[in-house]
Simulated scan of single mutants.
Amino acid sequence: MKQLRIEKKLTQQDLAVVIGVHRSTIGNMEDNRSKITKEQAQKIAKVLGLKEAEDIYVLGG
């Protein structure tokens, strides 16, 4: 997830604002310290241009 976010030139803060969480939550997701809800996965997938929200889980956060 982190690599895709960087490729899209998004900061953790940018992604956090779009999906409605705190910036530190994005960092925790990227480091696998926070579980990603289905709703969050769907929003993240859309922002990062992934076809399926499940791809977020495959990326390991």
Rank of each mutant, 00 (worst) to 15 (best):
M1S: 14
M1N: 11
M1E: 10
K2N: 11
K2E: 13
Q3T: 12
Q3G: 07
L4G: 02
R5H: 02
R5M: 00
I6S: 10
I6M: 14
K8S: 06
K8Q: 00
K8H: 08
K9V: 07
T11W: 00
T11F: 03
T11Q: 02
Q13W: 15
Q13D: 12
Q13P: 04
L15P: 02
L15A: 00
L15Y: 01
V17D: 15
V17W: 01
V17M: 09
V18F: 14
V18M: 11
I19E: 01
I19H: 01
G20D: 07
G20C: 03
G20Y: 07
G20K: 06
G20E: 04
V21W: 04
H22I: 07
H22W: 05
H22C: 07
H22R: 09
R23Q: 13
S24C: 11
S24M: 10
S24Y: 12
T25A: 12
T25V: 13
I26V: 08
I26K: 02
I26F: 05
I26T: 08
N28E: 15
N28S: 11
E30A: 05
E30H: 00
E30M: 01
D31A: 10
R33M: 06
R33V: 06
R33K: 14
S34K: 13
S34W: 13
K35Q: 14
I36N: 03
I36L: 09
T37Q: 06
T37R: 07
T37S: 15
K38S: 12
K38R: 11
E39V: 11
E39G: 05
Q40N: 15
Q40S: 13
Q40F: 04
A41I: 02
A41E: 00
Q42G: 12
K43V: 05
I44S: 06
I44Y: 03
K46G: 05
K46N: 11
K46C: 06
V47I: 06
V47S: 01
L48A: 02
L48K: 00
G49R: 03
G49K: 03
G49W: 00
L50W: 07
L50A: 10
K51E: 14
K51V: 14
K51L: 13
E52K: 15
A53V: 06
A53D: 12
E54K: 15
E54D: 14
D55H: 11
D55G: 10
D55A: 12
D55V: 13
I56Q: 00
I56T: 04
I56L: 02
V58A: 15
V58K: 13
G60V: 03
G60I: 05
G60P: 07
G61Q: 08
G61F: 04
